[in-house]
Amino acid sequence: MSSNNSNRKVVSIIAGILTFMPFLFLIMVPTYVKTQPELGGLPFFYWYQMLWLFLAAILFFIAAVLWNRFGGD
């Protein structure tokens, strides 16, 4: 029972960190207010945030699967 509980705690911390990453990186707005490097003529400001859509989905999905499996409902 107690190992189950500590597992749960570890999973909740990992899931929490994974969920928090996109918030952390995107809230630091000044880090991406720039034009260079461009991607196919598209300023950094635009493609960097688009990239975060993929990263967020990956991080959230891992967090969801981990929690659904080991955490609970």
Partner: peptide, 17 residues
């Protein structure tokens, strides 16, 4: 179910592309 809901939510940022 709650798990179904969580999994589908986690994949929704892809919709933002």
């Amino acid at each position: 179910s709650p798990k179904t809901l969580r999994t589908s939510q986690s994949l929704l940022p892809l919709y933002g592309v």
